[in-house]
């Protein structure tokens, strides 16, 4: 399955690295840099690093194994790319108020390394097909379609208001009207006897500034509200 397309091995490797850069670039462009952190450059660097490690793994050691009892497992370095990139991915994942974030970003980095690895080994078809499939998944499964499927996003709302359970019940009603579900809360009392509620919520989509304005106008008792 691996193909060697050019006669000169050095040029071949240059081609493989280039294809890795392109594949990583495409995946990265679709994961455009928002506050998630993994942008085009990250994906390109991961892909080219993985491809380079595989090239080293496969071709970098064979010239020194003529000595007896010296061997080389040419897949060993490549094998560690899998574990290695997973550590990097693990650093991206974090928990906030009981829900996990960064998982998709970490998985994206992981799969980019896989594609870089495939291309580095010479399996162009596998790498390119994988890239196309990932792009397909990302484009089809973007926010719009997920919303229609009832997907909710997790977020956090911080509200400051007077200490009055009835008012809080009214606030909950208001949120419920907007399809915001509260699944976790943390209450802190401030010096002026107001309470600050930190609510972990699930809602169909991110709240726009205008809706926040409407919320605070609707309920005169909210002193401050933030996301």
């Amino acid at each position: 399955m691996p193909h060697v397309l050019l006669n000169s091995m050095n040029l071949e490797c240059a081609l493989r690295l280039l294809v890795a850069v392109v594949c990583g670039g495409f995946i990265g462009i679709e994961r455009t840099h928002r506050s998630k952190g993994a942008g085009v450059r990250t994906h390109i660097l991961v892909a080219i690093g993985a491809a380079l490690f595989v090239i080293i793994s496969k071709y970098g050691f064979s010239d020194y194994v003529e000595i007896e009892n010296t061997g080389v497992d040419i897949s060993r370095v490549a094998a560690n790319v899998v574990t290695g990139i997973s550590f990097l991915g693990a650093g991206i994942i974090f928990t906030r108020g009981g829900s996990i974030h960064g998982l998709t970003t970490a998985a994206g980095v992981w799969v980019t390394a896989a594609i870089g690895l495939a291309v580095g080994a010479g399996m162009y078809t596998l790498g390119i097909a994988g890239t196309v499939l990932i792009l397909f998944v990302q484009l089809i499964m973007h926010r719009g379609m997920l919303l229609e499927m009832g997907n909710m996003i997790s977020s956090r709302i911080v509200v400051n208001m007077d200490d009055n359970p009835q008012l809080f019940a009214e606030l909950q009603e208001m949120l419920k009207d907007r399809h915001i579900e509260i699944y976790g809360s943390h209450i802190k009392r401030r010096k002026d006897n107001t309470l600050t509620y930190t609510l972990d919520v699930r809602m169909p989509q991110n709240i726009s500034s205008k809706e926040v304005l409407n919320l605070i106008k609707e309920s005169k008792v909210i002193k401050s509200i933030g996301f």
Partner: peptide
């Protein structure tokens, strides 16, 4: 000796 073994751990280590 597997001449690639130490080098393979560079990958996980740097991660």
């Amino acid at each position: 000796a597997d001449v690639a073994r130490v080098a393979s751990n560079i990958v996980s280590g740097v991660s």
